[in-house]
């Protein structure tokens, strides 16, 4: 038996041996399978190039030599997995990011939402929550906050905890203020937070209309009928199959003529679901649900 095994190994000539890149791809496949088995998170439909990149920077941070070393740690240590999730999820966000988008939301979409007696908004992939507070501020200024409920969800519990606290570094405030004014802000941004030491604590009144919850777009279902869904710069990390399934979930969650806001560079053009939505503001990526599928 042993002899046979050795001869099999010898049969693989140098040119047949997998390259460095192929070995990494194989290791990542094993890692994805391990995570799926152990925690039920399926990373197999993530855009692989950026996922591979984030896993490599994770290795550097954890001071590991290769992807395989990550696998036993993730299988046996839940906390290690949580910190892995934190590393591989991208949480870059700011208040009123792309102010023009928020301005169009305020001017065009909120006027439509006014007709509802109760407004449900789902912020899917809210990261550390900056845009959730941005939204609440605009709803307040347009007189809609009292009848609104914002469901802010993410699969990264660490980010979600930060979002729920609503405490941000004071050094970010000048940028947030500048953005706020560009959205057509009607008051002073300083009206919405309390400065304490080097932090800004967002007002309680805004938080009263928010519900934060863990939700994984890959496996979790819809949970309420929404009038507006905001999901910006999340779909860019998914492959087309997963994008289509998430867009299907959004379509299912939206009321008749409900609105969907995507990220600046996200398009429905290549999606099977493109006929499920019609563009309301193409530049700002605001879409409306059409009822047939």
């Amino acid at each position: 038996m042993k002899m046979q095994a050795e001869s099999t190994i010898k049969q693989k000539t140098v040119s047949q041996l997998p390259s460095h890149g192929e070995i990494i791809d194989f290791e990542i496949k094993l890692l994805i399978e391990a995570i799926q088995f152990r925690y039920g998170y399926d990373f197999s439909h993530y855009a692989q190039a950026s996922l591979t990149r984030r896993i490599s920077s994770c290795l550097k941070k954890f001071e590991l030599g290769n992807v395989s070393e990550l696998i036993p740690k993730i299988i046996h240590d839940v906390e290690y997995f949580e910190s892995f999730l934190r590393e591989v999820s991208v949480t870059v966000t700011e208040m009123f990011r792309d102010p023009l988008v928020f301005k169009v939301l305020r001017d065009k979409i909120f006027t439509q939402l006014q007709t509802y007696s109760r407004i449900n908004i789902w912020h899917a992939g809210c990261a550390t929550g900056e845009e959730v507070y941005s939204l609440a501020i605009m709803l307040k200024e347009e007189g809609l906050l009292s009848r609104s409920r914002i469901y802010a969800t993410d699969f990264n519990n660490h980010s979600l905890a930060i979002a729920e606290q609503g405490i941000y570094k004071a050094e970010k405030i000048p940028l947030f203020t500048k953005n706020y004014l560009l959205t057509g802000g009607k008051a002073s941004f300083a009206d919405y937070y309390q400065a304490k030491h080097s932090h800004a604590i967002m007002h309680e009144e805004l938080k009263q209309h928010m519900t934060f919850a863990h939700h994984n777009l890959i496996k979790d279902q819809c949970f309420a009928q929404m009038h507006l869904i905001i999901c910006r710069n999340v779909l860019i990390y998914f492959d087309r199959t997963l994008q289509d399934s998430v867009l299907g979930l959004f379509h299912q969650s939206l009321v008749h003529r409900g609105y969907l806001l995507l990220g600046d560079k996200e398009s429905l053009d290549f999606s099977q679901k493109k006929n499920c939505f019609t563009a309301i503001a193409k530049e700002q990526r605001i879409f409306q649900k059409v009822s047939y599928e």
Binding site: A47, Q48, A49, S50, R53, I236, Y237, D239
Partner: peptide, 21 residues
């Protein structure tokens, strides 16, 4: 590449974008 996003190429010869640092 669009401004303010990383541009990556997937194995199936398509583009993906990322907002990593």
């Amino acid at each position: 590449a669009p401004a303010k996003y990383h541009l990556l190429i997937e194995k199936e010869e398509s583009f993906s974008l990322s907002l990593e640092p």
